[in-house]
Amino acid sequence: MRDIHELEDFLAGATVADEVHALRPDYRALLLAVDGIEPAASDDESEALLIRAEASAAARLADRPVEELPHIAAWRDVYRAFGAKPQRTRNSLEALTRRAANGLPRVNRLTDIYNAISVSHQLPLGGEDLDAYTSAPHLIRAAGTEPFDTTAGGETVIEHPDAGEVVWADSSGVTCRRWNWRQCRRMQLTDDTSAALFILDVLDPATDDDLAAAADELTTHLRVLGANVIIVRRLITNN
């Protein structure tokens, strides 16, 4: 298990490229590195969070379609700005919000918690296995040659992002395509994950207070996932 200084050093190496901030100067990323998690199946607490998230999505969608929700609309705009088609590749927040009407997925308590908080707070929120990283994460505009391991037809395949696509990457390749669309297979949280990185993505009109509220709730629920949980956070902005 890592100590707090190791987590701080890992987050200190994370970067957002200037060309990403040039695309959206208002973008902010809040990273939480966590270790000491005791893996467990979905439980009553995570179920309650998912039910609350489903209800919050239903309330928001009572008078407007999902694509008109403010933060989802902002992400659809930024996807278009780097050449992605948001109606074909939906950001993680939109994909989850659309699923909420028929029930959010129940995976394990760690995944359930961050999915519920993403929908309730209307922020894209990714969770990845910290032990799978081979370097600190970097948000870049891809050259188009970087490897991305995924599945197709039940088989493992290596794909590549489009040139100019915004991706998270480490020294081994792309960890998440199209900013917050789909993570690679090696980063997926599993029933054995004991250390994780969470990335909260924010664009206007979401505020810094909105971001802090989501991170604070995530932190509260992560702290009870083990007697020795350690959490470190870092905010990356355009200054």
Rank of each mutant, 00 (worst) to 15 (best):
T219D: 09
Y133L: 10
A12K: 05
L30M: 13
V66E: 09
I4R: 09
R90F: 02
L7A: 06
G36C: 12
F198R: 01
H160S: 08
L96R: 08
A12P: 13
G154F: 05
W168C: 06
R99V: 01
V34P: 01
D43R: 07
A169M: 15
L32D: 07
L203D: 02
G126C: 09
R60P: 00
I236A: 02
R2E: 03
T193P: 00
I140K: 01
A33E: 08
T151F: 06
E45W: 03
N180I: 13
D18G: 06
A95T: 10
L7N: 03
R233W: 00
L11R: 00
S194C: 10
H160V: 09
F198M: 05
R90L: 12
D170S: 04
R2P: 10
S56N: 08
P25N: 09
L200S: 05
E159I: 06
P137N: 03
Y27Q: 13
M1N: 01
L96I: 00
A132C: 08
L123G: 05
I158V: 15
R64M: 11
I231M: 03
D18W: 00
A62D: 10
Q183D: 05
A206F: 03
T237A: 10
I231K: 04
I51S: 10
A53Q: 01
G173A: 05
C176T: 11
A169Q: 13
T15S: 08
D129S: 05
G153H: 11
S172T: 14
W179E: 14
W75Y: 13
I230Y: 00
H160W: 07
R99F: 04
M1L: 04
R52H: 09
S120M: 03
T134Y: 06
L69V: 15
G154T: 10
A59I: 12
A84G: 02
A53M: 06
N228H: 11
S171P: 01
V34Q: 05
D192T: 15
S194I: 12
L31H: 06
R64V: 07
L7W: 05
T145S: 14
A227P: 14
P205I: 13
E165K: 07
H221P: 02
T150Q: 00
K85R: 15
G144Q: 06
D191L: 09
M1G: 11
A53D: 05
L197E: 00
V157M: 02
S92Y: 04
D18C: 07
L123R: 01
R60W: 08
D201G: 13
A73R: 15
L104E: 07
Q122A: 11
P65Y: 02
P105L: 10
